[in-house]
Design a protein around this nucleic acid. Structure first.
Lengths: 186, 186
DNA sequence: CTCCAGTAAGTAAATGAGTACTTACTTGTA
DNA sequence: TACAAGTAAGTACTCATTTACTTACTGGAG
């Protein structure tokens, strides 16, 4: 095996992302991560200072990627919600990781979201009275994630839950819902 | 200690609800549940056939209670969303338990929600075109739970996140958001 | 150009703390 | 007394973390 610290570190992070997304922090196995990354348990301690450090690193990386790929667009919040939906559709790990983090390690979730604050708040306020800017953000995230977070017993009631068209329809429903929520009362 | 099988069983279920809500299935400790219930590990196996059985029982009970206390009201969906918000505010365990179940034991989540199907679907359809009945249900749940599921880094941006007035305002925002989502396009 | 220390990268196996689940027993009640 | 309810102390793991070791690359002295 060629020796490349950076590459090994990255393989470990990728394997950890899948492992923690699938089983969470308590259920995730260091051993599985190491072998999946074609590396060794010891390296996890060398590069990430243990299981906790590795988990935090995977979460931070997932959130960073998301902030990079789907930055808030205050001038078109409904469209942005659609993009967030797409991102979660393509990378389901991110959402699972966030949920796990919030349940198991809430302290890791508190800080990174400060990023979003300044970007959107000011703009969103005026548009949607009586909903505040924070209200709007909270609901947009909730709606964009709704399909992935709903229990299968509910989402499975659709005609054809897994086809590409169904996914497109869901995306459209997200955009529509946000549009309506933001429109002025008649 | 007086001997009362039913009472012991109930104490175990109550303790398990708190334990699993706090730590999830993988993180929940049978030992802690037993001592918190002022009982013994062995009883968990006698009454619930082990950790898995106990977890499933707590989830089923939590969902049953919720279906009982906050039944869908098709004629006032926005008001119903407010009630769901209240319920989650009073019993945060329920939502945490559901999230954990969906992440760790999705098979336990699939079935019980069939209950909701017939109750609401037919009625909701006509009102909200082009949103389908399932769309509407998915989004209402998402909005009602949005505040509890949002990371603290986001919800904490409000002026006074913990006062009673702030909670009332959040409830109102939930009702408003659902009302708007369901109103006809102007 | 060639060795060849020195160091970074990688490995295997032990350690020790927990953990779900079981067995063998005791106690209260009808 | 008989049986249901309850208890305590194992048993047989599993898992994160560490220790002690081996292997490959690098840069400078000969």
């Amino acid at each position: 095996m060629a020796r490349d610290a950076a590459a090994t570190k990255e393989r470990i992070l990728a394997a950890a992302t899948m492992e923690f997304a699938a089983h969470g922090f308590a259920g995730g196995r260091v051993e599985r991560i190491a072998s999946q990354a074609q590396s060794n348990v010891r390296m996890i301690y060398a590069y990430y200072d243990g299981k906790s450090g590795l988990f935090d690193a995977t979460l931070a990386e997932a959130l960073r990627r998301m902030a990079e790929n789907v930055p808030p667009r205050p001038e078109d919040l409904a469209g942005w919600a659609g993009d967030v939906f797409d991102h979660h559709q393509r990378f389901p790990e991110v959402l699972r990781l966030s949920m796990w983090a919030q349940l198991e390690r809430p302290e890791a979730t508190a800080e990174p979201h400060d990023i979003y604050r300044n970007k959107t708040l000011a703009v969103a306020t005026a548009a949607a009275r009586p909903l505040s800017a924070v209200d709007v953000l909270v609901f947009i995230y909730a709606i964009a994630q709704a399909w992935q977070l709903s229990p299968e017993g509910l989402t499975g009631l659709e005609d054809d839950p897994v086809s590409g068209e169904a996914v497109a329809a869901r995306r459209q429903s997200v955009v529509t819902a946000v549009e309506r929520m933001l429109q002025a009362h008649p």
